[in-house]
Amino acid sequence: MQAVLYVAHGSRLRAGVTEAIQFIEESKAYIDAPIQEICFLELAKPGISEGISKCVEQGASKIAIIPILLLTAGHAKKDIPEKIEMEKKQYPYIQFTYGKTFGVHPKMIDSLYDRMIEQKVPLTSDAAVLLVGRGSSDPSVKKDLTRIANQLKENYQFKQVEVSFLYGASPHVEEALNLLVDSGRKQIFVIPYLLFSGLLMTGLKSKIKELTDRNHPILLCDSLGYHPNVQEVLLERVNELIGN
């Protein structure tokens, strides 16, 4: 019997956990699998082992494990695969498969543009965009976010789209924002490339308030979050594994 186990990151904030659960619960209805469970990588329960156990208790013979992660870094490359290998020893009769992160996908790029349009302001000819990633020491994260930025620039004909990070990679968001302001761009859109921003938005709002003025508006968009396109990419990732 086929099971799908969704592995969300987890958050110290209850709102972050609640949003992840709500997003996955809404997505379950579109997946043809009799067993579907949710677990968390860290900072929330149940953990991966408990999630797998729940699937097995319901009669699963195959478990497709889906990371609810935007980009492929240490969690996707190391932490989750190591946990799966441990569980294979516990359940040698279960067939485990492991899916891809959302990654670089056209629908994710379109979601970013939607977040800009939601600001309900006319786009100027020299509008610049700053994507803000969480950050990682894994260089593939910066590489992939840069690919996303380049595709956004190409698809929607922006003059400038830059990337920045909250920690763990350069440039830091404050540095990148200062450079854009100093360059004289008259309109700057800042888009957090995050599923859940929580407290991270507070610092961004303060910095933007400090730098913005009437001649150089800086528009902080909603984070990528659980946009409808994100759900479509999730469904695609699940169906890649379970063959629908």
Rank of each mutant, 00 (worst) to 15 (best):
S49K: 11
I24Y: 10
C55M: 08
L70S: 02
F165S: 10
V129S: 01
K120M: 13
G184F: 10
M116L: 02
L152D: 05
K186I: 09
L195G: 03
P67S: 04
I191A: 06
E85H: 08
L70I: 06
K88A: 05
A29S: 15
K205Q: 14
P192F: 10
R134G: 02
D32K: 14
P46M: 13
H216E: 00
L235E: 00
K143A: 14
R237A: 03
N244M: 11
V238S: 07
E174C: 10
L241C: 06
L152N: 00
F196H: 11
E240H: 04
S11K: 01
A73L: 03
E25F: 08
K83P: 05
G198T: 07
M108D: 00
Y226R: 05
V104A: 07
N244L: 14
I35A: 10
V173E: 11
G74I: 05
Q157L: 11
Q157H: 14
P171Y: 02
D213A: 01
H227N: 03
A29C: 08
G198R: 11
L241E: 09
F102W: 06
E37T: 09
I31D: 07
I48E: 01
A60P: 08
K28E: 05
S53V: 14
E82A: 13
D114W: 00
Y30N: 04
V132Q: 09
V132P: 13
E42A: 08
R185C: 13
L152G: 04
R214N: 15
L235R: 05
E82G: 09
D138E: 10
Y30C: 09
F23S: 01
Y167R: 07
A15H: 10
E25L: 08
E162M: 12
E240T: 03
R14I: 10
G168K: 05
K62L: 04
E174M: 11
D222Q: 11
L200F: 11
I66C: 07
L112V: 06
D222L: 11
N178R: 06
V161M: 06
R14L: 12
I35C: 08
V56H: 13
H216T: 08
Q95F: 03
L13A: 15
Y167M: 03
S140M: 15
V238Q: 01
E162S: 14
T18P: 00
K142R: 14
L131N: 09
T72S: 12
P81L: 06
N155D: 15
V161P: 08
S53W: 07
L241V: 07
S11Y: 02
Q36T: 08
G103M: 00
R134I: 06
Y156K: 09
L177T: 08
I48K: 03
E42K: 11
Q160S: 15
E232A: 13
P34G: 03
N239T: 07
Q95A: 12
S164N: 14
Q231W: 05
D32S: 12
K88G: 02
S125T: 14
V230S: 02
K153W: 00
V161T: 11
G103Y: 01
S197R: 00
T101K: 09
K54N: 15
T101P: 04
